[in-house]
Write a protein that binds this DNA or RNA. Structure first.
Lengths: 100, 100
DNA sequence: TTCGTTGTTCGCAAAATTACAAACAATATT
DNA sequence: AATATTGTTTGTAATTTTGCGAACAACGAA
């Protein structure tokens, strides 16, 4: 398990707005920047920043459809993230003993 | 799904050192502060801080066994965290369509 | 009482995160 | 060319995170 990779994914998920964005992206086929911005009560610059972080983490991708930008979840990396977390939870979930 | 709760757990996992700590805790029955500190190449003040964050997030618990402090994973909350992430991944993993 | 051991807390500094408005870039449309 | 639309980037400010050494607290042992 790549600790730092997992930490990177966790960091991307460590903000309610970014989770909202991911859930919103998952609920639609069509997902332009403007649609995302409309869902959220924050400035577009901030939305753009959150999208950048999600993109940098690899969880989403965006492609230009001039003059709009279509965003969607990066399924491949999302799967990897899922496996990372699953691995963590299975490693830790299986052990017993200790104090509780 | 509580977005902010999930974000809180994700934040706790958003640092390699904290993941290391969790994995270390999961691998032992006996887990004093000193044992954790020994595993890590960082100052004890920093270790203590990371432990505090994990504790504040509810993922671990610590009890004093004078003069030491025994730490362990909080299984109950850990389970809840697992369910949070599982829910996220299942909500997002199941949708199709979109651009990839 | 005076040490020694074990961790936490405090004070500080550097870096990163979050949020916004304003400026900007790229492309259509008039 | 001038304008409008869509997002990104820049600049700025406030807050949080990360990390450390030093001081501190609690307790047992000498």
């Amino acid at each position: 398990m790549e600790n730092s990779q997992l930490a990177k994914y966790a960091k991307a998920l460590a903000h309610p707005t970014r989770i909202e964005i991911l859930l919103f992206l998952a609920s639609l086929e069509s997902c332009f920047f403007g649609d995302i911005h409309n869902e959220l009560p924050i400035a577009k610059a901030t939305v753009s920043q959150h999208l950048k972080e999600l993109k940098d983490a690899g969880l989403i991708q965006g492609e230009i459809e001039t003059p709009k930008v279509r965003y969607c979840i990066n399924r491949e990396n999302w799967e990897e993230a899922r496996r990372c977390f699953e691995s963590l939870f299975s490693v830790i979930g299986e052990k017993r003993i200790c104090c509780n």
